[in-house]
Nucleic acid binder design. Structure first.
Lengths: 175, 175
DNA sequence: ATTCATTATCTTGATATCAAGATAAATCGT
DNA sequence: ACGATTTATCTTGATATCAAGATAATGAAT
């Protein structure tokens, strides 16, 4: 026997509706996984708003940050980039094309593998991504304000448990 | 002082890279929010795979389930549907068009509001969504197998805390 | 050496999505 | 009643994405 919860979110309503309509099904998984999906959608909107101030789009940011955090010389292959961003190879080719046209990255042949290419952040790209990232962190911190430090850590740990099987089984699954 | 964690995921590596490159920034928010985004992407892939067996696409499922859990007569307005699925009105119009063409829903004018339309699940739509939903739950249960029942409940609760501000502030924000 | 499988990237064609605006009906205040 | 605002849906045009396949270089096994 548990207390009634003080506040409800959309998922509580959604789950209640399912229990009414399909009492034969165990819809408990939705309590976690629907929240993950819905929260992710909301986060994506926040990100877009944060980046708009810096003239960066969400997809650009994903690529630029992957290069930025790889450290000097801020250079990775398209393959490494698509694994970092969870997009397909066709998408990544397209993204690199556009980032290069905008002068934020440059492409050059890989000297060690003639099939390959290396993508490198330009100084303009570096500046752009650093400003946008600082702003994003500021906004994300606000979104987490409802949780205490210990709660955040617990949450991060539980999410990690769910994520490990994906990251372990397919660190290089891409087309 | 905490124990070193036994297993790492991609986000652990990502955060470590940032701490190396930008020790001046507090990147802790990523521990939670990057995991939410990445997990959501993986979940989307799983969903697609589950639905493929039932000849349903992910976006179709979202609309059909919203109708299904609304109960008899399985009928909602496009406005209610887009609020339930977090998409724009243009997207929803397009989705309804295609679902109607596939015979899974029917559209009829709202007798009480001449601006409006009502979208109703057909028997074929009902059958389709029920089969796909049962399968989805089965697969989602497996994804959560790494957590105990109490852990799932804690996780759901923490996610709810993050979600409430979004669901409260904008229960009807749509274009 | 030669074949086979793998890896790396790019190309193509189809599609779902979004933002912004158009249309039309309902509602509210005066 | 009347005009202004809000609500509900649809249309349009641009764009990012994906799946599948093409091209080409590498590596491993015989």
């Amino acid at each position: 026997m548990t207390f009634p919860r003080p506040v409800e979110d959309e998922v509580d309503r959604l789950v209640a509706a399912w229990r009414q309509e399909r009492p034969d099904l165990d819809v408990a998984p939705l309590e976690v996984l629907s929240r993950v999906s819905r929260l992710s959608r909301h986060l994506e909107r926040e990100r877009r708003a944060a980046f708009a101030d810096h003239g960066v789009e969400s997809w650009e940011f994903d690529v630029l940050t992957a290069l930025r955090r790889s450290g000097e010389p801020y250079e990775l292959s398209p393959g490494a980039l698509l694994r970092a961003t969870l997009v397909t190879s066709g998408t990544m080719t397209n993204r690199i094309d556009r980032l290069a046209a905008a002068g934020l990255v440059v492409r050059r042949p890989d000297p060690e593998d003639r099939r390959g290419v290396l993508v490198r952040l330009t100084p303009a790209g570096l500046e752009r991504v650093d400003a946008a990232f600082a702003d994003l962190l500021r906004r994300e911190r606000e979104l987490l304000a409802g949780l205490g430090p210990d709660e955040r850590q617990v949450l991060a740990g539980l999410l990690r448990t769910l994520l490990v099987p994906f990251d372990a089984s397919a660190p290089g699954t891409a087309h």
